[in-house]
């Protein structure tokens, strides 16, 4: 606590004038400089007017037959998906989708995992 008080007292007393470089090191940086990783990508996307979430997790179902399964992308060997079996359905059918064979939902739609490298 003493050291915090000391730093704050020092800090307030040397504002603006003498220690210019110190002052620069002790002020906020541009929010864009502070953020990193995914958070930064989100911020940049938002600034560019794009959807801040670059991934679009909701997938529109195609015909979903055995020959033409709905393709679900993942960076992993398996992914959990939820099938809304029909428009009237009031619940989501959750299931695991594994790399390799297509998987059939109870209601008859087929899904297949396709590899998509991580963004």
């Amino acid at each position: 606590m003493v050291s915090i008080c000391k730093r704050i007292a020092l800090h307030s007393s040397r504002r603006n004038t003498v220690y210019l470089c110190v002052r620069l090191a002790n002020t906020f940086m541009d929010p864009k400089e502070l953020v990193t990783g995914l958070e930064k990508r989100e911020l940049l996307n938002e600034e560019a007017g794009k959807d801040p979430d670059p991934y679009g997790l909701a997938i529109k179902r195609g015909p979903g037959t055995k020959d033409k399964p709905t393709l679900v992308s993942s960076a992993f060997d398996s992914r959990i998906i939820g099938c809304v079996c029909d428009d009237e359905s009031s619940h989501i059918n959750w299931m695991w989708l594994h790399k390799g064979n297509s998987t059939r939902c109870e209601c008859g739609f087929w899904f297949k995992l396709v590899e998509k490298p991580p963004l």
């Binding site: 606590m1 915090i4 730093r7 002790n26 906020f28 940086m29 541009d30 929010p31 502070l34 953020v35 958070e39 911020l43």
Partner: peptide, 17 residues
């Protein structure tokens, strides 16, 4: 609050973080 104060001193915060 003291935790926030120390994080502020080490520049953890910005206007949107």
């Amino acid at each position: 609050l003291i935790t926030c104060l120390m994080r502020h001193l080490t520049l953890h915060f910005s206007s949107n973080h």
